[in-house]
Design a protein around this nucleic acid. Structure first.
Length: 307
DNA sequence: TCTATTTGACCCCT
DNA sequence: AGGGGTCAAATAGA
């Protein structure tokens, strides 16, 4: 991934994004065809291989968008009309002071800490409401806070891979008092750790109960640009079990984890029409309009991004 | 002993 | 100034 963050100019990055996304779409289309006619379609790639390629495509795309070349990322964000709220840099040398401190037993002086604190809200954020605060990723709680006018405290989690793989994903979980047994989970930043890729194939397994659960509710709150638009999924977009059963292979985080690019699209769709990248993407649109398999939110959102 | 969680304090941001 | 995000020592648990 690190090699992806070289000094590519904006045009190069854009082309790479387009290529990756178009490729991913094509793979998803193939996958759908294979699922419809599972026996001996084309005889080329297996469903697993296709799924892997799709995942890889998204990963490449995300890595381009979130690479350490902050200026490039900002440019891409702006061209995507994403409000990244880039008044402050996302990743400064001080942004992750804990990692700098890891291994140091002595307490840092307050003078050294001053000015190093950076809020993470400038990262891409999205919010999910669900009946559980759990998901497929390994999180480590690092704080809890009583929130004003809120009955329940807010818990703060970071990815357990933060130190060994530098994953910057964090989440905040707060129980909603108005809605029983419902948690609002705010994810900040994407997982860059490998655990995501190791677990991803599991998202293909969905239990029937997860589809039929009448109590299932989940929707996203896009916080870009402070536009808190709520996306209420269709029935097809309710594929994941939110129960805290032992089978945790399917969790909502898969959907929101990978749907972020489309999340941007869903909520900022109109604004994209006027930028070059969107025009380019539309230009790449395949002639054959296919529905992406609904068993997977990721694919569905992927489709909605481009079709 | 190691790892995870709790919790009070610190500090940034609005 | 105060709310909220993070740190890190203390504590709990495996």
């Amino acid at each position: 991934m690190g090699t992806l963050c070289s000094n590519e100019n904006l045009t190069t990055k854009r082309n790479r994004l387009i290529t990756e996304l178009v490729q991913g779409k094509e793979y998803a289309s193939q996958l759908k065809s294979m699922l419809q006619k599972p026996v001996g379609v084309n005889g080329s790639l297996s469903t697993e291989e296709l799924a892997g390629k799709i995942i890889r495509s998204f990963s490449e795309t995300l890595s381009v968008l979130t690479c350490s070349d902050q200026s490039g990322f900002d440019e891409v964000c702006q061209n995507l009309t994403i409000s990244c709220e880039n008044d402050s840099p996302l990743a400064t040398s001080c942004n992750d002071r804990r990692s700098e401190d890891s291994g140091h037993s002595s307490k840092r002086s307050m003078a050294n800490r001053r000015g190093c604190y950076k809020r993470r809200k400038t990262d891409e954020t999205w919010t999910v409401l669900s009946h559980t605060s759990e998901d497929s990723h390994a999180w480590r709680k690092y704080g809890q806070k009583e929130i004003l006018n809120s009955k329940y405290p807010r818990s703060y989690f970071r990815c357990t891979r933060k130190f060994d793989q530098g994953c910057k994903a964090i989440k905040q979980v707060q129980r909603i008092e108005d809605i029983p047994e419902t948690y609002q989970t705010t994810y900040i930043g994407h997982h860059t750790c490998n655990s995501m890729f190791l677990k991803t194939p599991q998202m293909l397994t969905v239990t029937d109960s997860s589809f039929s659960d009448p109590c299932w509710e989940s929707f996203l709150v896009n916080e870009h640009s402070n536009h808190h638009s709520i996306k209420i999924p269709s029935e097809q977009e309710q594929p994941f079990t939110l129960s805290s059963s032992s089978n945790q292979t399917i969790k909502q985080e898969y959907s929101k984890e990978d749907q972020t690019p489309s999340d941007l699209t869903d909520n900022n769709f109109s604004s994209l029409d006027n930028n070059d990248l969107w025009s380019d993407l539309k230009g790449f649109e395949l002639s054959e309009k296919r529905a992406i398999p609904s068993f997977n939110n990721d694919f569905h959102f992927f489709e909605s991004t481009f079709l």
